[in-house]
């Protein structure tokens, strides 16, 4: 199945994300910073795992990405990571390749959205 990255466009809901953090904006900023640091590392780890045929490692990183993104209700990223996790579980490296590309595109879009999220804080 060919997936178009556009179907995974994030539309982050700042209010509901903040509600899950009990309105703690500082915490939101901190978590976003953590994600900005962690996401490229996870992507890197997934590329390497895929290259080395380490499906277990790939699945673990995809699972982490899914968990990390779910904290921001970034469902596009969650779904893409989830798809990749499934591919890894099924040891379907062809599908995994495509899923990883999708995930990279989605995460690429997510990062600036998350940064905006922090700057939007009402004064």
């Amino acid at each position: 199945m060919v997936r178009s990255p556009s179907q995974y466009g994030e539309n982050l809901d700042r209010a509901s994300i903040l509600k899950r953090l009990e309105g703690n904006q500082e915490l939101l900023t901190e978590l976003v910073q953590l994600f900005l640091g962690e996401a490229p590392q996870l992507i890197e780890a997934m590329r390497n795992a895929l290259q080395q045929g380490d499906m277990q490692g790939l699945g673990r990183s995809a699972h982490s990405m899914k968990g990390a993104a779910s904290n921001f209700s970034a469902y596009g990223t969650v779904n893409a990571a989830s798809q990749l996790e499934n591919d890894a579980k099924n040891e379907d490296s062809e599908s995994a390749k495509a899923s990883l590309v999708t995930l990279e595109v989605v995460v690429e879009r997510l990062l600036p959205e998350l940064e905006n999220l922090c700057q939007e804080s009402p004064k």
């Binding site: 901190e30 978590l31 968990g67 990390a68």
Partner: peptide, 9 residues
């Protein structure tokens, strides 16, 4: 939790 952000949250 092995995932950093969930753990920190």
């Amino acid at each position: 939790d092995d995932e950093l952000i969930s753990r920190r949250k």
